[in-house]
Amino acid sequence: MAKAAEINSRTLSDVQLKSVTLVHVNFERDLDVVPGRRDVRIEIGSEMSTDDPSAAVSRCRVSLDANDDDSGESPMSVESAYRVVFSSESADLESEDMQAHLAALAMRVCYPYHRQIIGQMISQSGLPPLLLPLVPDDQWVLNMNVKSEEVAAG
């Protein structure tokens, strides 16, 4: 397991960020619901593109808890998605281990963009401002290493 992480540390230094592109934004709000204090659900994740081994898609969705009725529908949700393209002259971007690292790296790169656009859309909608929490760098690195070890062990 340590060998896989070591190989990735060396090869990750050869990987470069080529582009970050906003590919999707969606804002939905039920205007009949009066904004108030509600619990907020944040879902984040990323996955490698099925058509390009050097690209990943990072997604973030923020929603308020469902209404008190049994519909299960959220009175407000905001989603954003970014496509991240990496390049490398020497690293094998198609290996399973590298794909796991690139997916985690895409989320780490895009999270500030998700945080900004979602916060702006919510505040401009007339709802109370909401900022997504900051995530310390060491937490992203920890998640990347765990993912790498799971892939290497599997």
Rank of each mutant, 00 (worst) to 15 (best):
V62I: 15
G119Q: 04
F86V: 06
V57G: 01
S58P: 09
P133Q: 06
E79D: 11
S125F: 03
L132E: 02
S87L: 13
S63C: 11
V84D: 04
N67F: 02
D97F: 04
S74K: 05
R115N: 02
L64Y: 10
A91L: 11
E96N: 13
G36E: 09
S90W: 07
A66P: 03
L31S: 14
S95L: 13
S71K: 01
P35G: 10
V34I: 11
A91S: 13
A100T: 10
L132F: 05
P35V: 11
D32W: 04
A103H: 00
S63V: 00
D92I: 00
L130C: 03
G72H: 10
G72W: 09
E94Y: 07
A106E: 02
A103P: 05
L127H: 11
P35S: 09
P53R: 03
F86S: 07
D138K: 08
D30W: 02
D69G: 06
P35T: 07
L132Y: 00
W140E: 09
D70S: 15
M48R: 14
S54I: 08
P53N: 14
R37Q: 13
I117F: 11
A56Q: 07
Q124M: 15
I44K: 04
P128V: 03
R108G: 08
A103W: 06
C110W: 05
L31P: 06
R38T: 03
P53K: 06
Y113A: 12
E79M: 13
Q139G: 04
P128R: 06
S46V: 01
E73Y: 00
I122D: 15
V78P: 01
S54P: 07
S80N: 05
Y111W: 12
E96V: 08
F27P: 05
S88K: 13
V109Y: 13
P129D: 15
Q139K: 09
G126Y: 04
G36Q: 12
T50F: 00
V135R: 13
S54M: 09
Q124I: 04
S49L: 15
Y113I: 02
D32F: 07
P133D: 06
D39L: 11
M107P: 01
R41A: 11
L102V: 10
I117G: 02
Q139P: 02
G72K: 06
I117R: 13
P35W: 01
V135Q: 12
M76R: 05
P75M: 08
V78K: 00
S123V: 11
P133Y: 03
G119C: 10
S46H: 07
H114Q: 11
A56M: 07
D65T: 12
I42W: 02
M48N: 10
S46W: 01
G36Y: 03
A100M: 08
A100R: 00
V109E: 03
P133F: 07
P133R: 10
G36L: 08
P35H: 08
L64Q: 10
P75K: 00
